[in-house]
Design a protein around this nucleic acid. Sequence first.
DNA 1: AGGATTAAGCAACTCAGTTGCGTAAAGGTC
DNA 2: GACCTTTACGCAACTGAGTTGCTTAATCCT
Lengths: 145, 145
Amino acid sequence: MAMSEESGSAKTAIKMIQEAGARATAARLTVLRILLSADHALTHSDVEQAASAAGDLIERVTLYRVLEWLVDQGVAHKTLGLDRVWRFNAHHEAISNHAHFNCTDCGRVYCMESLNPVFAITLPPHFQLQQADVSLQGLCPCCTD
Amino acid sequence: MAMSEESGSAKTAIKMIQEAGARATAARLTVLRILLSADHALTHSDVEQAASAAGDLIERVTLYRVLEWLVDQGVAHKTLGLDRVWRFNAHHEAISNHAHFNCTDCGRVYCMESLNPVFAITLPPHFQLQQADVSLQGLCPCCTD
DNA sequence: AGGATTAAGCAACTCAGTTGCGTAAAGGTC
DNA sequence: GACCTTTACGCAACTGAGTTGCTTAATCCT
């Protein structure tokens, strides 16, 4: 209901889910469309509000499970904000070792997909590195005077 | 009670607190000594257990306030683990832009004080960078086969 | 359309961290 | 050293993100 206009992102969302070989339920489509159209990482309640604003009510637990599922499928990924809240981001290609920008004013978290930081570190003995992420803090475009 | 032996770190703790121009209470001394003698970042409950093991019971809320106070004083700093739990680390000098190592096996978080990562990034327009932290993931010395 | 499989919905729970307020302790002052 | 003001402690009750178990409903394959 009330979701047939934005066919562009909807098609992408359906395609992404079906490529994962899973059921394209209403909740998954709604959440994925919302994530894909956001310019920053969204919290659980961000998604919940965006969904209800669009007329698609999603149950609390369902939303948690959908978000976790999207991450498991590799369709989305999550980051911890400084407020201990997970934020989710859908991406079109697999990405790793990228940076997240935390706005110290509004709290928004931006996923810098195209930003592949190059850094050189040497770990102490007996530490085995598997992955590295960069957390940036500062002011986002809508919070800079 | 039962805390007069380890005079070395205790003296340091007292000095650090008094240099901050604040009251050196029993709870603050105990917590700071525990943090200073740890080789990795400690959660609230880590500190609570270490304190009670040493015979110094610290009230839940008091501990939260002491830890927050230490961070405000610049005597300690905190990091979010992947389990959404704050971990605290006391340090002897002011440090910034350093790396944290999250063990994917035991969950411990190590603060790489001497590890000043060099990385090159270019932010999108209108983003103002204030600080950068590096989050490393892998196996710590006690979890490597 | 029918039926096995899988997700949604609901309620109750966990756990880290917070808030408000009365009481006790710390440390400067007389 | 006793006094008094300031500041931290202790207790209880609360918040809010995320989780678990189980029943009902929806998906989609044949």
